[in-house]
Amino acid sequence: MKNVLIARTSKGTGLETALAFGKSDYKVFAAMRNTSMAEDIKQRIAAESLDIIVSEMDVDSDASVKKGENSLVSKYGNIDVLVNNAGIERHGSDEELSLEDFKSVMETNYFGVLRSVLPEMRKSQERCNINESSVSGHISSSPLGAYAASKFALEALSEALAGEVKPFNIRVAIAKPGIINTQMAGGISIDKESLYPHSKRLAGLFSASLKTPPTLVADKILEVAESGTWKLRHPVGPDVEPFIQWRKSMTDEQWIDWSAYSDEDWYKSVELNFG
């Protein structure tokens, strides 16, 4: 039986990923910052008799990650698969978001991934490190500038890491979901008061697009872990590739102009391109 450590499993794609691995005969270490939020996953574990161990681990803290890792490895052995799923979102214009917002997003979404378990993974036979990014790791637009910056950074780190650890037979993969029906994405669908029109626009776009279930992301991450593939980037969801290709069809200046459209022209463009 292989061991998998998954960060941030209290809800959303992390919870579903833990369940997917548990159903596939992995020993799952379901890490989360606050285990008092583990009621949902504990109920599913009991109902389906899954080999999932809930563990307290805060990816924003070196000490917490090290303590949690040491405890798990000493009891259960080496980590075969690591899934970095921890992520938070802050949306708003660059002017209106606080510096603390920018720092908190980067701390969890980027620096949290640096607190890895590579020394333990090197001791395993088949090893895989999967980092959950986003289509926002490829495309940046307001009001997701802070979030996109953290995901751009995560993808750059993952690309470099893939080349570093391949000689040790450790696979690195990036999962790139689009708009997924999670609590975090649901928060984006709520209009925020702003001097800029972009928050209202994106709220409308997300409200109309929250159809893809988080189980789709979980299934893709499990597939990547079990496939043995060395492919780096893995889009997840029906909207990702069309959105990426649409962005590629524009120059940078055209993309900026699209973002700066009047509301009337912006909504016409979205309807024309995406229905």
Rank of each mutant, 00 (worst) to 15 (best):
S142C: 11
S55G: 05
E96S: 12
L99M: 15
L114K: 09
V135A: 15
G68R: 00
Q125V: 01
A153Y: 06
N131S: 07
V113A: 13
E96D: 10
L99P: 04
N78Q: 13
D51R: 04
E39C: 02
S136Q: 15
V105Q: 14
S74E: 11
G77E: 10
C128N: 13
A46Y: 05
K103E: 15
R122C: 13
E48K: 14
G68F: 09
E132Y: 12
A146L: 00
L82Y: 13
R122W: 03
E126W: 00
S140D: 13
R122V: 09
K75I: 07
M106D: 05
L118H: 11
M57D: 02
N109L: 07
Y110Q: 04
P119W: 09
S141P: 03
N78M: 12
S136F: 15
E95W: 10
R44T: 05
V135K: 11
S141G: 12
E107T: 10
D62T: 13
V59C: 08
E48L: 06
M121R: 05
V135W: 10
S98N: 10
G92W: 13
S74A: 14
S140W: 08
C128F: 02
V81M: 09
D58H: 01
A46K: 15
G87W: 04
D51M: 01
P119V: 04
R44V: 04
K66V: 07
E100H: 07
R115M: 10
A153I: 00
G77I: 12
D94V: 09
G137R: 12
L114N: 07
A149N: 05
A86E: 12
I79H: 03
E95V: 12
V117R: 09
T108K: 03
M57A: 05
L114G: 00
L144N: 10
H91E: 12
V135E: 15
E132T: 15
R90W: 00
V135P: 09
N84A: 11
P143V: 02
D58T: 06
I53R: 05
S61C: 07
I139G: 14
G137A: 06
F111Q: 08
Q125I: 04
D94E: 06
S136P: 07
R44D: 14
V81G: 11
L50E: 00
I41G: 03
S71T: 08
L72F: 10
K42Y: 10
N85Q: 08
S61A: 06
Y76I: 01
A86N: 04
E89H: 10
P119L: 11
L118E: 01
D60S: 08
A38L: 08
N78T: 14
I52V: 01
C128S: 15
A153C: 01
Y147K: 10
G87E: 02
N70T: 05
